[in-house]
């Protein structure tokens, strides 16, 4: 009997494909149901917020109505100010993320693939990780000045640690069974790193990138609160100092939307790259 005539063989592919499809693309009704469920709580909060404003439970000088926030957003969009501030924040974020991610990827790869590098590098990085990030601010201002460089450095520090930790630990934990496979297949160190350790670590690395991105958004806000003349963080301080809570809330909503959109974009990219 030929192996290809086995019933398990002839049915396995269709079954596997169906399973994969089900995992990748839930039925429309299920997706709609999930989206509805996920929107329920935010919509309730929005309704409660609108009701509280209308009934005057909280003063408008403290919590403006959703309509006020929409109108402020509209004004900022029409004047072009929102895009100006958004572009400044995105540029800082992108530069900080790229620098932090590149440094973390390089050092994480080295520490994860060499016991010697790990032993000499990791204690220092773990020590630096325990420094509260905001404590770096005075030093960065002294080193890089009060303009862009110090803000980008702070964002890079925030992005660095989760990426480094995820990559280094995933590489170090690569299953030793793959090493046996590489040995019997006579594959060298480079092939073991690029064909085994790196792809095996990719899911953890992507988790690190997403965590780093999330922290990057926190740090860009902190950096712009330190003192900036443009950016969404500047809108926050400007709104606070001029007594316009609707500007503050607009900036918060834009931060949330940016964070969510960038995470989704990274997740979509990861889905194309990662094997799991």
């Amino acid at each position: 009997m030929s192996l290809s005539s086995l019933p398990s063989v002839s049915t396995a592919r269709s079954t596997a494909s169906l399973t994969a499809d089900a995992a990748a693309l839930p039925p429309r009704a299920e997706r709609f149901g999930r989206a509805l469920l996920g929107s329920l709580l935010p919509l309730c909060l929005l309704a409660l917020w609108a009701l509280a404003s209308r009934q005057g439970w909280i003063g408008r000088d403290l919590l403006p109505s959703p309509g006020d926030v929409l109108r402020t957003t509209e004004t900022l969009v029409l004047s072009g100010a929102l895009f100006h501030h958004l572009a400044a924040t995105l540029a800082r974020m992108l530069a900080g993320f790229l620098i932090g991610a590149a440094a973390a990827s390089l050092l994480g790869a080295l520490a994860g693939s060499s016991v010697l590098v790990h032993a000499s590098l990791d204690p220092l990085i773990q020590g630096l990780r325990s420094v509260p990030s905001i404590a770096w601010v005075p030093l960065f201002v002294l080193w890089f000045g009060i303009f862009e460089a110090s803000k980008i450095a702070l964002i890079a520090v925030g992005v660095f640690f989760p990426i480094y930790l995820n990559l280094a630990s995933a590489l170090a934990r690569t299953d030793s069974r793959w090493d046996e496979l590489a040995a019997v297949c006579e594959r060298g160190r480079l092939a073991r790193f690029f064909l085994i350790a790196l792809p095996a670590s990719l899911p953890a690395y992507i988790t690190g990138l997403r965590s780093g991105l999330g922290l990057g958004w926190m740090f860009v806000a902190a950096a712009e609160l330190m003192g900036a003349s443009q950016g969404l963080g500047f809108l926050l301080t400007d709104g606070e100092q001029t007594g316009r809570p609707e500007t503050v809330l607009t900036a918060i909503v834009i931060f949330a939307l940016c964070g969510r959109a960038s995470d989704r974009a990274l997740a979509a990219l990861a889905a194309r790259l990662a094997w799991r």
Binding site: E180, V184, C185, E186, A191, W275
Partner: peptide
Amino acid sequence: GYVFQDARLLPWLSVAGNVAFGLT
């Protein structure tokens, strides 16, 4: 040529990629 108790295929490579793994 070694066949382990488990198939030990690299899940990020295709079937052909796995078979070619030892053919450098």
